[in-house]
Computed example of a mutant assay.
Amino acid sequence: MSTVAEHQAAVRALVSSHWRPATEYPPLGAALGRVLADDVRTPIDLPPFDNSQMDGYAVRADAAAGPLRVSGHVAAGDPITAFPGGAVAIMTGAPVPLGADAIVPVEAVGAPGEFAAVDDTVELPAPVEPGSFVRARGSDLAAGAVLLEAGTVLGPAQLGALAASGLTTVPVRARPRVLIVSTGAELAEPGEPLAPGAIYDANAVSLSAAITLAGGIALATGVYSDEPGHLRLALEAAGPVDLVVTSGGVSAGAHEVVRDALEPLGVRFGSVALQPGGPQGLGAITVAGAPTPVLCFPGNPVSSLVSFELFLRPLLRGDRPVLRLPLSASVDSPAAKHQVRRGRLTDAGTVELVGGVSSHLLAAYARSDALVHLPVGLTRAEAGEVVEVWRIDE
């Protein structure tokens, strides 16, 4: 039996030996949610010039307290000019005149929003410190510095920073094409009549959604049969893909279609010290004439999603946010297995478990926003005991 860490390492080695994503250069408007392929450096200083943090007056910090003549007016978007002395009325974001080195807020010398006219005077209440209310050139980042590191997922703030640097395209990893094959004679397409003994196929939809949110391109198909030949035909009919994920048919019983079809092709099957998600398979098979990694997950829907979270998502999207939180109630766990329970964060700063241990409780998973990890060797955790929690709603 493998540990979770050992199986994670095996999956990483398998996938990385076959999938080496190309680099694409989409425009920023099409890059939301993509993953950077390379470090990106800013070509300019951020900000590119000294500018005012406040509406106020630009002055020299060595000016004494007392009256100063208003010698000019600068608005955002105006060119950078030399400081003529005295006090220059300046708006938020406007370039600080060359030679001035501090800003006096307008409300410090008068009513908010009311500026003195050029050639009038303003009363400086006290000397100011150099740099006061000045956003210095390069204070966010200097030209040539790394703006975003490879592996960064591009969200609103990241795209905004790229745009602020003047960049129009960005190097991202090509999205992997993932073929999802749900298997089992007991499955039926959602919406079709449900025969006695049949269940609807939840894994095709849930795994497709998980792959898509992780930045992949999901291609789902169902093999609603326990005949190994049917699965092999479905794989032979598939076009080129970067990865195959199957669900179901991986245990050691009879009618294990995935194991029966793929074990002769060199795919390895075994157990991981994990609950749910113990039965697992991995290897490389030929799809569309090319060796392609295949990950074989259990068929119970919670087992399938937990397997995705632990073994595949980190390779596609990176690690989930990890918290250390106290349990809201006590829980038992099998000593020999890493148990993953579904949970929900509370307003009290704890995590409460949702649903039971069983791997068919998909509705309970749907009401959860976290995975709670109870490691090997832990048989019981009391209320208030701190455990590792993964956020799954981000």
Rank of each mutant, 00 (worst) to 15 (best):
352 E>T: 14
113 G>C: 07
333 S>H: 15
15 V>Y: 11
339 Q>W: 03
114 E>N: 04
70 V>W: 13
348 A>S: 15
1 M>Q: 12
108 A>G: 06
270 G>C: 04
368 S>I: 13
129 E>F: 11
190 P>F: 09
221 T>V: 15
43 P>Y: 06
206 S>D: 07
216 G>L: 06
164 A>I: 01
337 K>D: 06
387 V>R: 05
160 G>D: 13
208 S>F: 04
84 P>K: 11
320 R>A: 14
191 G>T: 05
377 G>R: 12
122 V>P: 03
163 A>N: 10
267 V>R: 13
153 V>I: 13
361 L>S: 00
278 G>Q: 12
246 T>S: 08
376 V>T: 11
157 A>M: 06
309 E>M: 08
237 A>I: 09
98 L>Q: 14
32 L>N: 09
12 R>A: 06
158 Q>P: 07
34 R>M: 09
257 V>L: 06
78 D>T: 14
229 G>Y: 07
316 L>C: 04
324 R>Y: 06
105 P>F: 04
123 E>F: 02
332 D>L: 10
365 Y>S: 01
54 M>V: 04
301 P>Q: 06
127 P>M: 11
57 Y>L: 02
248 G>F: 12
393 D>I: 02
19 W>F: 13
171 P>I: 07
376 V>N: 05
284 A>W: 02
384 G>C: 01
12 R>S: 03
31 A>T: 00
73 H>Q: 11
9 A>V: 01
300 N>W: 08
237 A>G: 10
188 A>K: 13
9 A>Y: 06
224 Y>Q: 09
20 R>E: 10
212 T>K: 14
222 G>E: 03
152 T>V: 12
7 H>Q: 08
394 E>F: 10
291 P>R: 01
174 A>Y: 03
133 F>V: 00
1 M>L: 11
71 S>V: 01
187 L>K: 06
244 V>C: 10
385 E>I: 13
246 T>K: 04
107 E>A: 00
336 A>E: 15
139 S>N: 00
173 R>T: 01
264 P>S: 06
339 Q>A: 11
95 P>R: 00
53 Q>R: 10
387 V>P: 00
216 G>T: 00
337 K>G: 02
69 R>V: 15
300 N>L: 12
314 P>Y: 03
19 W>Q: 11
